[in-house]
Design a protein around this nucleic acid. Structure first.
Lengths: 229, 229
DNA sequence: CCTCTTGAACTGACCAGTCAGTGCAAAAAG
DNA sequence: CTTTTTGCACTGACTGGTCAGTTCAAGAGG
């Protein structure tokens, strides 16, 4: 199947450690786009192998099953995301920024990550709130890993007096996460020409409260049960 | 179920119509939970039929295909959601509330809707940003239908001077939508005991800007390209 | 020579969609 | 009032195709 007449060179690229690693990476890349497009169950192993440019047998030499391939993909992806977010928060801290600044930096990093790995993001969104799947525990871990990075920074900010003690940490972390996720997916899908900083500014503005900045007649207030019938 | 109680005879036409309707509703209900749990392609028509308590043939008597069943389900669901959001906004307006109050009312309505139809919500999240699927145009329409209800209210608020002209309407609508969506899914999945009003209050607080309410050292500011390298 | 990859053939389970037939209630005929 | 017809709604066994996973002998690379 060597359609590149190998010329003798391309194959010997930097296989960082083994040929095996390179093959596994190729399979991850092929799988992530296909599964993002079509979903897990309608993506066939033959398709993954073909897009990765390897034989089907190779898939099963490297991964025990289609399920295992997918789970390792999920784990690998979330490690990248968590590291990226953590790194953004740390950089802001090093530079002497506040915790709230760190949150803002994480939003930026989140947007950047999603713009770099749109397929991976689509895939997470599609699978993350699913129940009853075989790889449910993996998904649980993945979600926890991502959200806790955000929640930790919020917790620190509350402890340091930067944020009100009244806020609900896990829920706020989720909401923030969702806001960035959905806004970024919409950006990528429907307004891909806009710059990252532009989108980032819009989200910062929303959070900063300039959107509902005027003190409303009470509706946007925090009091519960506002006249719902 | 006799829409026209005109007497004993006209009911006949009605009942024949209603039997089918009841079956279709049962199939919708069965399909929505199964697909939310397992995804579209790993949910079999046999499963749907079994859960609905009908024979497989009945599915195909009522719907041209598995795809068509799903598309009609999506359309039916989003109509319910859009109506619910619109209704919430209208009620606030009738009561003399501001547009921002209307937005808040829509957040409440969104949370309520999701708590009532969690499976439908999971399903939308899972499918909405998928590309390359056969029912892509349906999904496009569905998304547009839901987001535009929010965007319209934001637009009115901007026109009426309640919100800054600087805000990005479609992006803000998406972000708001995503915030509610993800927060609600997390609420349902991980803290189901909390009350709706509690969750609503947390989100209102986030939007109201109390979270990042202190004026940060610039990180949360709206200026673009804030020190990101 | 040991690890990894190839490619094609094969198996067995699973599944979307089909179709000939059943049940039944309301209209038509007797 | 009784019998027959009509056709809607539903049934479930069956078909043809698809796909995960297996096997293996023959390389390729290092």
């Amino acid at each position: 199947m060597s359609r590149h007449t190998a010329g003798g060179t391309i194959a010997s690229m930097d296989s960082s450690h083994t040929r095996r690693e390179a093959t596994r990476r190729k399979l991850f890349e092929a799988a992530v786009t296909l599964i993002a497009e079509q979903g897990f169950s309608s993506t066939t192993v033959d398709e993954i192998a073909e897009r990765a440019g390897v034989a089907k047998g190779t898939v099963y030499y490297n991964f025990a099953s289609k399920n295992v391939l997918f789970e390792e993909l999920l784990r690998h992806g979330v490690e990248m995301l968590a590291a990226s977010l953590q790194n953004a928060a740390d950089e802001v801290a090093e530079r002497g920024g506040s915790r709230v600044d760190a949150l803002d930096g994480m939003i930026h990093a989140g947007l950047y990550f999603i713009s770099q790995y749109p397929a991976l993001t689509q895939l997470y969104v599609a699978e993350l709130w699913r129940t009853n799947r075989t790889w449910n525990s993996t998904l649980m871990m993945v979600r926890e890993r991502a959200v806790s990075v955000v929640a930790d920074v919020i917790r620190d900010a509350v402890a340091g007096g930067e944020l009100s003690e009244e806020i609900d940490i896990p829920l706020t972390a989720s909401a923030l996460f969702g806001m960035v996720l959905v806004a970024a997916l919409d950006w990528q899908s429907f307004q891909p020409d806009r710059s990252l900083d532009d989108v980032h500014a819009a989200l910062s503005r929303l959070l900063q409260g300039r959107v509902s900045g005027h003190q409303g007649t009470g509706g946007a207030g925090a009091e519960a049960g506002s006249g719902r019938s």
